[in-house]
Write a protein that binds this DNA or RNA. Structure first.
Lengths: 188, 188
DNA sequence: TTATTCATGTAATTTGTTACATGATTCT
DNA sequence: AGAATCATGTAACAAATTACATGAATAA
């Protein structure tokens, strides 16, 4: 999986491990994050199996290994790209909290939900920032992927905001809220 | 993580490992799946650390261990439930395919998308089946979690259907399509 | 001069999966 | 009689994370 992601990155252009990581942070990191501790060993494995070749050099006194994908690497990546998708699963910790929320006081649940919404808003902002910075450098599919992320986060934010309204219908936290409430009361 | 899920399940009622697994399949499995090979060792770890106690018995000639959560287990679970959420990340293989779709022929990408939509529809159906079967047995939060799953899958299905339309606007596959196409052509 | 960025890696641990292994009971 | 369900576990492997470890160049 990580190997395939690396190969994919190297289909764009030859890069050092460090550059691959940075490229991922500006693109795929939101749906597939990678740490140093897994990236470099994975690169070495790819080299060992002939999927990439490394050119070692010293630039500005810095030791670098520029990796380039080989024809075999391209073939492996291409096969993987067309292979059937693995069963889809969204491992989602927040849902476990929600599932067992009967063990929480209402205020505690509320706090968790608003915490999560904040998380999602930050993620969404960071994707928007990435898009601003990268929009001209990436192809359409890569842009579409970024848009997916934004749509996805927004869906989640909307979902939890609706949940908040369902759970705590009386409190809206805005000047309008009282008016809405009055209207609602009148309707009864 | 798995331990917490187990503890959560045991806050509902005492169960055997087998029953826990079945209960998960009817509820949490879509966002947090568990295999035999991890469930039983995890139960033993929970027992070893005093978070659960097991009552061993033979019922209908079958050896069983009925696990019950202890006060310490309840405390541990309760603390975890209120703890800050870990950074949110949705590891999503399909997006890697999309991200690198410039390496795919249009038909190949199309096949992958429709494959994925099928996956999602099956998942959605299975959640609907679970809801029908379980609706009366579960509390509101558990029901809400099931609804999240359905809303989530539906969001994804809609998103990919829209993507299909954007990528292949000429083919609609319905009798209406030709009329639409004619209208569109006229506009040019 | 101090922090950040560039640059690569190892070692220990975590967390899980898959396959294997067993065996009784109940449904068809 | 055979398949499915009930019921529990082990062992080998996979895939990653976190923390550790190093060190030079550059920007503040």
């Amino acid at each position: 999986m990580l190997e395939h992601l690396i190969l994919g990155m190297l289909t764009i252009k030859p890069m050092t491990g460090y550059e691959i990581k940075k490229a991922m942070q500006n693109s795929t990191a939101f749906f597939s994050n990678v740490s140093d501790g897994s990236l470099y060993p994975a690169l070495n494995r790819c080299e060992a199996s002939g999927l990439v070749v490394a050119r070692e050099l010293v630039e500005n006194g810095r030791f670098k290994k520029i990796y380039e994908i080989t024809p075999e690497g391209n073939e492996v990546f291409s096969v993987w790209l067309k292979a059937p998708l693995k069963p889809f699963m969204f491992k989602y910790e927040m849902l476990i909290r929600l599932f067992f929320a009967h063990n929480l006081a209402p205020d505690e649940l509320r706090e968790i939900i608003s915490q999560h919404i904040e998380q999602l808003q930050e993620l969404n902002s960071s994707l928007q920032a990435i898009e601003k910075k990268q929009a001209k450098k990436v192809d359409n599919f890569q842009l579409t992927t970024l848009h997916f992320g934004q749509d996805f986060y927004q869906f989640l934010i909307n979902w939890y905001e609706k949940l908040e309204q369902d759970l705590y219908p009386d409190e809206k936290g805005s000047g309008l809220a009282k008016a809405d409430q009055a209207t609602k009361d009148k309707d009864k």
